[in-house]
Design a protein around this nucleic acid. Sequence first.
DNA 1: ATCCAATATTTGGAAGTTAAAATAGTTTCC
DNA 2: GGAAACTATTTTAACTTCCAAATATTGGAT
Lengths: 178, 178
Amino acid sequence: MRDQVKTAYGGAVPDTPDPIAEAHRQWSVRWPEHADHMAAVTSVMRAQQLLLSRIEAVLKPHGLTFAAYEALRLLAFTRTGTLPMGKMGTRLMVHPASVTNVIGRLERRGLVGRAPSPDDRRVVLATITPAGRDLAEEATAALNEAGFGIAALPAERAAEITAALRAVRVSVGELAEG
Amino acid sequence: MRDQVKTAYGGAVPDTPDPIAEAHRQWSVRWPEHADHMAAVTSVMRAQQLLLSRIEAVLKPHGLTFAAYEALRLLAFTRTGTLPMGKMGTRLMVHPASVTNVIGRLERRGLVGRAPSPDDRRVVLATITPAGRDLAEEATAALNEAGFGIAALPAERAAEITAALRAVRVSVGELAEG
DNA sequence: ATCCAATATTTGGAAGTTAAAATAGTTTCC
DNA sequence: GGAAACTATTTTAACTTCCAAATATTGGAT
C-alpha cells in the first residue's frame, strides 16, 4: 500500500503537508495584513469541495444530487408538501432559474408535481409526491448515517464550525448580529 | 428604506432570522445526534456561496472567474511560471478536465501559453505570459483590498475559521493530524 | 523487440449556476 | 376602466464542474 498521490478531485491528497498553511506563509511575506482572510476564504472553499463530494457520493445511489436533495427536503419539511417556486428560490438561496431547472428534473421523475396557483396565476406551486417523500426520507437517513461526510468529527467541533461561520454570515449582512 | 426581501442569490436576505439555526432545530426533533453535523455542513455550503459571489464580483471587472484566478495565481507563484497541466489539477484540487478548460480559456486570451513537454510528450506545460502576470498581480491587489469579501471580519475571527475547518480536512483525511 | 499496464491530457455529455430577456398576470393609481 | 409599474416564472445563452471514454505516450516485464 504505497502512499501514492491519488485521483485528486473529490477526495484528494495534496502534495504538500498543508496547502493552506503554505499559502498563508506565502501571503504573509507580501501582504501580512490579509493573510488570515485569504486563508479563511480558501479554507471555506476547500471544505465545501470536500464535503460536497462526500455528500454527493452518499446521495448518488439514490439518484439525487445535493441540489435536488435540498429541494426535495424543503418540500418534504412543509406541512402540505407544497411551495411556490419563488419561495423555494428564496429559501434555498438560489436563482429562480435554478429552481425551474431542478424542479423540472424532479418532475420528470415523478418526485414532485407542478401546478399553477389558484390564487395567483403567475405563481407555480411545486408539490412533493408520495414517491418523492419516500426518497427524501431514504436519502436523509443515508446522510445521517454517513454523518454528512464528517462522522469522524466530534459534535463539538462541528458546532464550532457553525459558530465560526456565523461570523461570516453576519459580516456579509445575511444575519443580524446576535 | 424598507426591509425588503431582496434579490436573493448572490447576496441574499433570508425570510427567517437564521435559516441554519432553524434547520438545526428541525433536525433536533427527529435526529438529535446528527443535528450539529448537519448544521456545520450547511454552514460551510452557505458560507462558500456567499464568499464566492463576493469574490467573483471583485474579480469580474478584471475579467476573471475565481477558478481562472486560482490557476493564474498558481502559475504566477512558481519561479519559472510553468507547470504541467496535471500538476495544476493536483494543486488546485480540481479535475484534469477542468484544468484543460480553464487553461484553454486563459490561452485564448493570451494570458498563458501551452506547449508539450520536451521530456515527456504526454505532458502539456502551461506557462504564464507577462500579460498574465500583470493581470494576476492586479487581481490579487483587488482581492486584498476587498479583504476577500470579509474585510469586516476581524483577523482573529478569520483565523478561527481556518482552525475550525482544519478539523474537517483532517477528519476527511486530506491532512495528517497536527 | 514487443506487449501491456500505467500515466497525461483531451473530448463529449450531464448537471448546475447566473444574467438577461421574454411572457404572463396582478396591482396601483389617476 | 385603462395605462403603467411591478411580480413570478420560464427560456436562452454562456460558463463551470465532473465523470467516463478516447487518444497518446511511456516504461517495465518477458
